[in-house]
């Protein structure tokens, strides 16, 4: 079926190569992933090593021994930063997978079946959407056992609403297309239609959305850690910010302890956003063209010319 081949990864890659945003985002993310994976090889110090500090050598400025200075406990900021990438990325990836899985399922189901099912699912989505995420996350994290897994679950379970709405609207438009109507007319079952006709056209949106949700999840993890709600032994960028902020980093003028984790977060979030938007341009049939178009630009950008 052509729908499948259109979104095969070979095609994505070919298109993405021509899209500077996607390429830049991908490179930035790849760099972060490499740093995280090879942290023990790259980091000059072990962030879990025993501490020895005096009042005069905390927040030491950058030097030959410590390229990015030290933090409130005399630890090497560069090493913390490198190891911190691991937690941020792990949380980002896994939480966004959970979010996108839930959001995708709900969105497709609601959009395809319509009627009462859609009503119920979308009202649930609306409710989840209006509940302020952060306070709810704070409460949930407090109620569950403190672990990385729970932080991932909380972020994942709260972050799916945007995906659900996006996927639903895409499904709504796809299911009205002629090939879906024809498939129905020749007696195809719901499952078959969903799998062979709807899902392939929603998938590009899901992929792009996943990458965007990663950045939200990383921001949320940093927020929770910054608020001091994460396990203090789990070294993440948010945690570094928390320690620098609550333990006098600003007074000490230790910009290195505050800026580095911040830059790390910006780097990864920006990477995800660029990649996500680039992929969206490449993949979203509503933005460019899809497998039934005669010409590559037959469907105008944007949603103005919604097909019947």
């Amino acid at each position: 079926m052509s729908a499948v081949t259109t979104t095969s990864f070979g095609t994505i890659w070919r298109s993405a190569r021509r899209n500077w945003m996607a390429l830049a985002g991908l490179s930035m993310l790849a760099a972060a992933v490499i740093v995280a994976v090879f942290a023990p090889l790259i980091a000059p110090y072990d962030p879990k090593a025993d501490l020895k500090v005096s009042i005069d050598d905390i927040y030491a400025p950058p030097s030959a021994a410590h390229w990015l200075g030290t933090d409130d406990a005399g630890r090497d900021v560069l090493s913390n930063f490198i190891y911190g990438a691991r937690v941020s990325l792990i949380v980002g990836f896994f939480a966004s997978f959970i979010s996108v899985f839930i959001g995708g399922t709900i969105g497709i189901t609601a959009g395809y079946f319509g009627g009462r099912v859609e009503n119920i699912l979308m009202r649930i989505t609306d409710i989840m959407l209006v509940i302020p995420d952060l306070p709810l996350a704070v409460v949930l994290v407090a109620l569950t056992k403190p672990s990385l897994m729970n932080i991932i679950l909380v972020i994942g379970l709260l972050g799916w609403t945007g995906t659900a709405r996006l996927v639903r609207s895409q499904t709504l438009s796809v299911k009205e297309r002629k090939f879906v109507l024809r498939a129905k007319a020749i007696g195809c079952g719901h499952f078959h239609i969903l799998r062979r006709h709807i899902f392939p056209l929603v998938l590009p949106l899901l992929v792009a959305n996943t990458v965007l949700v990663i950045s939200l999840a990383i921001l949320e993890e940093s927020t929770l850690s910054f608020l001091g709600l994460a396990d203090p032994t789990t070294l993440s960028w948010g945690q570094m910010l928390n320690f620098a902020f609550t333990r006098g980093g600003v007074s000490a003028g230790a910009w290195w302890a505050l800026i580095m984790p911040g830059l790390g977060i910006v780097w990864v979030v920006l990477g995800c956003t660029l990649l996500g938007q680039g992929l969206e341009q490449v993949l979203n049939p509503r933005l460019e063209w899809h497998h039934l178009s005669v010409g590559p630009k037959m469907v105008a950008r944007g949603a103005k010319e919604e097909r019947p």
Partner: peptide, 27 residues
């Protein structure tokens, strides 16, 4: 507390009643 430390540094106040230990070296 950071604002307090800045305030005494710049002479905005004459005394501060508390401060983080991490700011001792700076002050």
């Amino acid at each position: 507390l950071d604002a307090l430390v800045q305030a005494i540094k710049t002479g905005q106040v004459d005394m501060i009643t508390e401060m983080p230990n991490t700011a001792v070296a700076t002050l």
